[in-house]
Each structure stands twice: as C-alpha cells, then as structure tokens.
Amino acid sequence: MNNFTYTQADGVDNAVQEIAGHSEARFIAGGTNLIDLMKEHVMQPEHLIDINSIHLNSIEFLEDGRLHLGALVTNADTAWHPAVEKHYPLLSDAILAGASPQLRNMATNGGNLMQRTRCYYFYDTTTPCNKREPGAGCSAMNGYNRIHAILGTSPHCIAVHPSDMCVALRALDATIQVKGLHGERLIPIADFHRLPGDTPQLDNNLAHDELITGIILPREHFTQHYKYLKVRDRASYAFALVSVAVVATMEEGIITNIRMAMGGVAHKPWRDENAEQWLKGKPATQENFAYAADMILQDAKTFGTNDFKPALAKRAIVRACREATNIG
C-alpha cells in the first residue's frame, strides 16, 4: 500500500470540489474493494476523500412514487429495507446473493456500482493487464478465464463486472444520480457501466469530478414475477459464473413484459432488448425461453476455460425465466 493523504468531506459539494482539485484522488465509503486493491498495489490513490459523513444514507420515496436509494446506504440496509423488500424484491434477492453479511454491512450502494472486476490478472501486478496498465496486454485471453466474459468482449479485455446488485438494477431500469462540479446529471444504468472496447481501463462513464449521490428505482415494481438466479462455485461467498435477473408481467400465461439482465458474462450487466421484445406476447414456455436465450447468446465468444459459459448461461436464463413466470 502506498502513502496517501486523507480528508473527510462534510457535504456533496465539498466532496466534489475536493476531488476535482486532485487527479489522483478517490472517494472512499465502505472501502470493501478499494482497500483490497490498494493493499495489492492495483490502485494507488495519492489522496482519499472519506464521504461517510455526507448524508446520503436514506431510502425515501420521491413525490412521483419512485424510490430513491441513498448512495451511502449499506447493501445490507438496502436489502432489508421494507420498501425495497416489498416493492423491489428482485433487488433484495440480488444484494443478498452477493458477498457475505460482514461485507454487505460495510459496502455501500454507490460503492457497489463502482466495484472493480475480480479478474485474477487485474489483481496480480506481476502479470500484464490492459485494465490496470493500458497497452500492457490481456493475460486472461490466453490464460485462466473461467470467470471471464463471453459477451461484449474486446481484444483488449475480457473482464466481467462482478456485482449482483447492478444486474438487478439493470433489469429494473434504475437511474444513477450523480453530482459534479457542473451540477447534477442522471445516468440510466444501461449507460453507467461500459464495455471494454479499446479503453478497458474505464469501468464506467462517471467523470472524475462526479460523485454518485443515489439510485432511483422506477415505479414499476415487478413483485409477482421476478427471479435472481446466481450460479457460482460454492453456495455462498463466490462471484457469479453466471447470474440472471428476470422481471416480468403476465396475463393468462402470456408474457406482457419481460426484462432479463445477466451478470458474470460481460464487462457490464448485460441485456438484450431484442430477445425481450421477441418474448412479449408469447406464452411462457421452456421453448420460448430457450429461443430467447439463444438470441441473447448468439454472439457469445469463449476463451478456453470459460467455454462452458454459453451452455450454462442458456440454462440459467431458461431456469430463471421459468421460475419468474411460475412455469416450474
């Protein structure tokens, strides 16, 4: 770990001004990912701005009925919040599928959006990694890529975003509220995280001087038909090999609306609106879900030790859709 300076911000504006003035500064909230990355010399910020004293720790309904999740509410408090449990059970399930109780007690909603890939090579500074050091090369491409991406990859990076919560947010069409020097902006979750392209060092579209202040969940609740399915190498405390978040509305066995987001397969939570569109108006059947899964996975590309992922992903999509639509 490098030496760094440290300040505590007492408000959003103060935090934003502070970070704008220091190109090598980072915000720190729960620290569950950043501290690890600093210990392993993957990230070496010169300055840490502690934002834990900023009051972004409430969950409240907005006047229009949407739910606002403060950026500093812990993952645990979010998952167990009555409004989240009642109206967005998918989000509760997804959060509780991630990490461990200890981590969820520390980790914040904003931090969850910002967590970085668990790629083995990203973490091991003796190996080349384009995300850590642009231009160095990707070691995962020809290496051990069991946990790596099959969709939206680039020749520069095949890392995946490790979050469970963000997969649910993608299915729920959440909006990320951020504030920068030039005021507030709202970023749809679809546009928050990036694909690696030729800038794998960038995980998301947040500007350096911007702070996440909250997450807004739309009024559509999906309390009847939802499923978060996480497939992993042990029963708990492992990142997803593949995860699927499904929400749907149904009328007499016919799908009237469906959204399917996937984790563990791409550099960002993955959605394929074409497949969703195709399912609308069709009966909820194994065959239809399998067809939609094939649509989602038609461009899947594998790299050796993750060759099993398309088959697993297809089964996971079908299973999650079946369970969400109660066809068993």
Binding site: Y120, D124, T126, T127, S139, N142, G143, Y144, R234, A238
Partner: peptide, 16 residues
Amino acid sequence: DHQFGRFINHNYAEYH
C-alpha cells in the same frame, strides 16, 4: 497459469 508458471487464484476470494 502456464503462461506465467504461477498459481493465479492466490487469494481467499478465488481459491475456494
């Protein structure tokens, strides 16, 4: 990882 001759999942998160 035979590219590097190195045990690559060398932490409790990935060594299950």
